[in-house]
């Protein structure tokens, strides 16, 4: 296993794997099925929210359309991410191709980052379908575009956390179905964690649990608040699960 010598070498390794991963992902019909599903659900929700909004002004569109739209976008990815990440390592393990990567000159970090970044690109591709709703909004009196920007940023950070979890789960098994179920259960658990804090009597404990859940930090972004501690949280969450992925893959050698 080659050690990473410089950022240039690191980026070269990541780039080689990234190209291959993107070709894999865009070759698969699964991505297009997911893109269609995502566009359909989001389009249907957007249409309904828009119809429910009494007037087309920023004051009404923000709470009635934009906030619920991004909330649902984030929620839908809890179902989509397990399907996107299930093959990351599981299928490669099953086909023996993971060994091909690990005995090559690619470092462990390059393999993990290459796969992670490719997943992020795919998520950006899916999110791009929602830009059409913003085009529709631009034809109204809606003006709070900074909120839209922070919401997209929040959704992206939030999904990156899901991807890191999905990749870790995929590294645990050579069965993609098990990997996707594990990812879904974990992400749903995180979502439920926030809801369960409402019923807690101990305020300190409830706040602590809330802080540990992804949706809590995501909510800030949808309100237009980019909190530094949320950025630290997202970075740590992603870093932690990518580290766990690395540990899990290292286990194969022993």
């Amino acid at each position: 296993m080659a050690s990473v010598k410089s950022p240039i070498r690191l980026s070269r390794g990541v780039w080689i794997l990234l190209k291959k991963e993107l070709a894999d992902l865009f070759f698969s019909p699964l991505l297009y099925v997911l893109a269609a599903l995502f566009s359909f659900i989001m389009g249907w929700l957007f249409f309904n929210y828009l119809m429910q909004s009494k007037t087309a002004t920023t004051q009404t569109l923000t709470p009635a359309v934009v906030v619920p739209l991004f909330g649902n976008m984030n929620f839908i990815f809890i179902f989509l991410v397990p399907l996107l990440t299930m093959n990351t390592f599981s299928l490669e393990k099953k086909n023996g191709t993971l060994d091909l990567l690990f005995r090559s000159k690619l470092s462990d970090l390059e393999i993990i980052l290459g796969k992670f970044v490719s997943q992020v690109f795919v998520v950006i591709f899916l999110l791009a379908f929602s830009l059409i709703f913003m085009l529709v909004l631009s034809s109204t009196n809606f003006q709070e575009w900074s909120l839209v920007m922070t919401s997209y940023l929040g959704v992206l950070f939030s999904i990156m956390c899901y991807l890191a979890v999905g990749m870790f789960m995929s590294s645990l098994t050579d069965n993609p179905i098990i990997s996707s179920v594990l990812t879904f259960c974990f992400l749903m658990g995180l979502m439920l964690l926030v809801l369960s804090t409402n019923a807690m009597e101990n305020q300190f404990f409830a706040e602590m649990i809330q802080y540990l859940a992804v949706p809590f930090h995501y909510e800030g972004f949808v309100k237009g608040l980019v909190r530094s501690y949320s950025l630290v949280y997202f970075g740590s969450f992603i870093g932690f699960f990518l580290y766990l992925t690395w540990r899990s893959l290292q286990r194969r050698k022993w």
Binding site: A2, R9, I16, L17, A23, S104, K105
Partner: peptide, 17 residues
């Protein structure tokens, strides 16, 4: 799902880092 040539190019790339 890769062609023989593309596969060998990929292997060459990751082996010649």
């Amino acid at each position: 799902h890769m062609s023989v040539r593309n596969f060998l190019e990929f292997v060459y790339d990751i082996e010649s880092l």
